[in-house]
Nucleic acid binder design. Structure first.
Length: 925
RNA sequence: GCCCGGGUGGUGGAAUGGUAGACACGCAGGACUUAAAAUCCUGUGACUUCACGGUUGUGCGGGUUCGAGUCCCGCCCCGGGUACCA
């Protein structure tokens, strides 16, 4: 048999299909193992070679685990709601459902060519009603729940109402809004339905509140941060402002502590956990109230450094702070309005990244809670409305931003600790030393001062100690079409009603236009009949859910994908538990991964799942970047700027004359360039070409550097493609795609095949008994591959295979038993080739997919001698081969007597003689 | 700005604190061939030497160590995230 990869791979896939090899059952006596990839968003551009990197990686691991005796769940699906489909719909008028379906079909075709061991019967698609029915169901549970701190888990709203009816809310310990009013049972029962609804909103895990969105008046729509570039809309460059709208939120902050603590139980990268920890941002500090001068209200401030309170020389509040309008004195109204306008045009990132110090005095003063001195109140862009209370107490001597602000506005800089240094030039945030200029805490240290201050604040009702989280509640409303509709409607009094669970799903209606309505409402608002489906005067919620809704629980659905009654059955969930091995990009570190953990914990609280965490082990694959090719200057007459050349046309970063002619025909940039305008180089065979410059950029159509996996598979075969993707480097580092190297892997697979068949396709004689040398090669390879798979170092596995095959190819004879082990060893990496060799060449009955993975036998690897590298003063000078069991003293004698060693030691007595057994010898003179 | 990664030949990369550059690509030379393809062999960090060899070398500057790509301190550059891209 010749190595015809097309034929071989097609045949292998047919065998797998015919025998349903990848069908996964939920009942097995084998231990379960769940290997999952982050499912893709099916974009119109199809897959490029960057996408399958993680999929191949996890596929190899899944196959390896299966060969190790596990019942492996390794599914795939599609995260199918999202902005790009909607933008495409706006441009073309095509229904996003249609384009999404087409894209999914393309993705599946592309994926199937690579030979993944997916059980497609378990495919999930988030935009299908059968799926989002359960997304809506989860939302209803969140809506009908509150976080009961007394039991430290979610509790039902009906329980809360019972408590309110009987005792009011004085004894309720809930994760809820800070400013909840206190009421008795009688008061509660006297409230109107609307009042009760508003109060319950402050407890629900899915709740509504006013918040700011990016409003673009010119486009008449709310924009995603992604759609804003330099403060203006990406489309059209129109100004964007902050607009207050009523929005749905999820109270993820209720779970902050559990999300933080849960990280300690997870087998994730420390860096990934750090990102989540920082995102959650737990800080222990205090709330302090600063009463306003000549005004009934007060400004609340959260600080982690209450000890610096006597260093406060001004207060800064966010320009959007509720109190700004009320406290600004008439002479500053104009300037404050002007400043607010400037801030509204900037994104939060821009505001925080801003190096220039800006701000505006409001004319108002607060009174220092302890000293009663007047403290001026400013607004400034570095304080964000959504963080903490949207107000900070500024201590210039201890905080650099405050310091710069104080310098600019000539405000006092008061040293507060005797250990503070250099504060003529910059702030010093130290906690060392004793307090000065600080009234009753003078002379105390940090710990004593903090405790005393919090005690005084609480005594005098000026504040209290508080744990604060940087994490905010998660915005859950999108004014978009292509997302899950909310199972919510409003009656004519504005009272919220939920759609009954047995009426789910609430189907996304068809609309005439996907274009923005201009009012800020989503396009759903134009589906009049749908909006009023619950009777005259009622209104369906027309916002839709965000992208992370469907992706926050999809991993559960694979366990029981067709269940119409519930998101996952108890049996299926209890068998599969949670994901053992999750592969995806680190760009999801704080988005998807945090939201999923939150939902999972909630589902555990309401008894839907039995595990506290969704993903036990997490591996991040690095991004594959593009490698663009550009013409060099002076290569083409009258063309000064480098031109991108399609990477698929070039070979070894060269463009031949022949390919140039294709380009001239197909690409209008080259229409007017004549062959003679090009400065051709000539190789030794007389072929003319130009050498191209390399530039690393994103893989993108516009750089002509996109490489399609289909092309790779058709040119080299899926097995070569799979192994080359792994060979590129460690899974977790970012790297550019370079097709040039793939021939090395292609050569390797052919060389491997030639262990079985000669150049004419005749089977080789493999009847000889294995030699010692052969067994050593085999077991060395088995040992290293097992180690490297466990360490997830698949690139070195491929190298190890290459070394093994190179060495075996040099042997005079190779035995069938050696080849059998080798085929099993390589099967996870090159499954098609392995399958055909396994069944047709080695005549096994069942698939190699279910063969047992080889383990090595140490007896073939024992060596009697070791070649010691000899260092003199840490520099490698020579090698000496010595028996492995030789004593140090004897080694020393032999080494010192060595000619080369003597040359370097010049017969001086060694100061030190270091022997690391089986590693190295170092002579220090 | 803040948080998290990364930086080793012409290229992708390898290296439990122990011979830096495994394995490949590319390049150069050679074998086979009418020729090409395929295959095989040899060389390939830089500088220096006829050669043996020597010097130097893992982004930059310091440090710890018998020994540092690896550990510590301070910089520079690049990538990801930054709450409505997914």
């Amino acid at each position: 048999m010749l190595y015809d990869y097309n034929k071989i791979e097609e045949e292998a896939r047919k065998k797998w299909n015919d025998n349903n090899v990848y069908k996964v059952s939920t009942s097995s006596i084998k231990p379960k193992y769940y290997v999952l990839d982050m499912f893709p968003y099916p974009s119109g551009a199809g897959l490029h070679v960057g996408h399958p990197l993680g999929y191949i990686f996890s596929d190899i691991y899944a196959r390896y685990k299966r060969m190790k005796g596990f019942n492996v769940l390794h599914p795939m699906g599609f995260d199918a709601f999202g902005l790009p489909a909607e933008q495409y719909a706006i441009q073309t008028g095509q229904h996003p459902e249609k384009t999404t379906e087409d894209n999914i079909e393309t993705y599946i075709k592309q994926l199937n060519k690579i030979g993944f061991c997916y059980d497609w019967n378990r495919k999930v698609t988030t935009c299908k009603p059968e799926y989002y029915k359960h997304t809506q169901w989860i939302f209803l549970q969140l809506f009908n729940s509150w976080y009961n701190k007394a039991i430290d888990k979610a509790d039902s709203i009906s329980n809360l109402i019972t408590v309110f009816n009987e005792q009011g809310n004085t004894s309720v310990k809930a994760a809820c809004d800070d400013k909840v009013q206190i009421f008795s049972a009688d008061e509660w029962n006297g409230f109107s339905a609307k009042q009760q609804q508003d109060i319950l909103m402050e407890y629900r895990l899915a709740f509504q509140k006013e918040s700011f969105v990016n409003w673009c008046p010119a486009l008449g729509t709310v924009l995603a941060n992604d759609e804003i570039v330099n403060g203006v809309s990406e489309r059209g460059g129109h100004p964007v402002e902050k607009k207050k709208m009523s929005q749905w939120f999820l109270r993820i902050t209720a779970y902050a502590e559990r999300l933080l603590n849960g990280l300690d139980t997870l087998d994730w990268n420390e860096s990934m956990k750090d990102m989540q920890r920082n995102w959650i941002g737990k800080s222990i500090g205090a709330m302090v109230s600063f009463p306003l001068k000549n005004h009934a209200d007060k400004i609340d401030v959260f600080t982690t450094r209450v000890d610096t309170i006597f260093g406060v020389s001004f207060l800064v509040i966010a320009p959007e702070h509720d109190l700004v309008n009320q406290i600004t004195t008439p002479e500053f109204v104009g300037a404050v309005e002007e400043y607010k306008k400037i801030c509204a045009s900037k994104s939060d990132i821009e505001r925080q990244a801003e190096k220039q110090v800006t701000g505006q005095f409001t004319g108002a003063y607060v009174l220092h809670p302890f000293t009663q001195t007047e403290v001026p109140v400013y607004i400034a862009d570095y304080v964000l409305a959504g963080y903490g209370t949207g107000a900070v107490m500024a201590v210039p001597s201890g905080d650099q931003r405050d310091y710069l602000f104080a310098k600019k506005f000539e405000l006092p800089i008061i040293p507060i600790l005797d250990a503070q240094q250099n504060i003529e030039n910059e702030a010093d945030a130290t906690k060392e030393g004793k307090y000065i200029n600080s009234d009753f805490i003078n002379g105390l240290n940090y710990k004593e001062a903090t405790a005393l201050l919090i005690q005084k604040l609480e005594e005098q009702k000026l504040g209290y100690g508080k744990v604060n989280f940087r994490m905010r509640d998660a915005g859950y409303s999108r004014q978009r079409y292509w997302g899950e509709p909310f199972p919510i409607y409003y009656d004519k009094d504005g009272i919220i009603h939920t759609v009954a669970e047995d009426k789910l799903p609430v189907i996304l209606p068809n609309v005439d236009s996907y274009k923005p309505t201009g009012t800020g409402e989503s396009p759903l608002a134009t589906a009049t009949e749908w909006v009023t489906q619950h009777g005259e005067g009622t209104r369906m919620e027309t916002d839709t859910m965000p992208g992370y809704a469907g992706s926050s629980w999809y991993f559960l659905r694979y366990m029981d994908p067709e269940n119409p009654n519930e998101l996952v059955s108890k049996e299926a969930q209890e068998y599969w538990q949670n994901v053992d091995f999750y592969v995806g990009g680190s760009e999801h570190a704080v988005g998807h991964l945090l939201y999923s953990r939150f939902w999972h914990k909630f589902l555990k609280d309401i008894g839907k799942v039995s595990t506290e965490e969704p993903f036990k082990k997490m591996v991040n694959q690095g991004m594959i970047g593009g490698r663009s090719l550009l013409t060099q200057t002076n290569q083409i007459k009258n063309v000064e700027i480098p031109l991108h050349i399609p990477v698929m046309l070039a070979q070894n970063d060269k463009l031949t004359k022949e390919k140039f002619l294709i380009l001239k025909k197909d690409d209008n940039r080259f229409e007017n360039i004549e062959i003679d305008d090009v400065n051709w180089e000539t190789d030794k065979d007389g072929n003319e070409f130009i050498s191209l410059d390399i530039q690393l950029e994103k893989m993108s159509k516009r750089y002509l550097n996109v490489v399609n996996p289909d092309d790779m598979v058709s040119q080299y075969g899926a097995d070569t493609f799979r192994m080359y993707e792994m060979f590129l480097g460690p899974i977790d580092t970012a790297k550019p795609w370079d097709t040039n190297g793939i021939s090395g892997v292609a050569n390797f697979i052919r060389k491997f095949w030639r262990l079985f068949y000669d150049d004419l396709g005749n089977a080789k004689n493999i009847d000889a008994a294995p030699t010692q040398e052969e067994l050593k090669i085999l077991h060395k390879t088995i040992k290293k591959v097992n180690q490297d798979i466990e360490n997830l170092s698949f690139n070195t596995c491929v190298s190890t295979f290459m070394i093994g095959v190179n060495e075996l190819a040099k042997q005079k004879t190779i035995s069938k038993s050696t080849l059998t082990e080798f085929v099993k060893l390589i099967a996870p990496f090159a499954p098609h080739t392995a399958e055909i060799l396994w069944t047709e060449t080695l005549k096994n009955d069942s698939s190699v997919v279910d063969a047992d993975f080889p383990t090595h036998d140490e007896q073939y690897l024992v060596e009697s001698t070791f070649t010691y590298p000899i260092q003199i003063n840490g520099k490698h000078r020579t090698n000496i081969e010595l028996p492995v069991d030789m004593e140090n003293e004897e080694i020393q004698n032999i080494v010192l007597a060595d000619e080369t060693v003597q040359k370097f030691t010049e017969n001086k007595e060694p100061k030190k003689f270091i022997v690391v057994k089986g590693r190295i010898v170092n002579v220090v003179v």
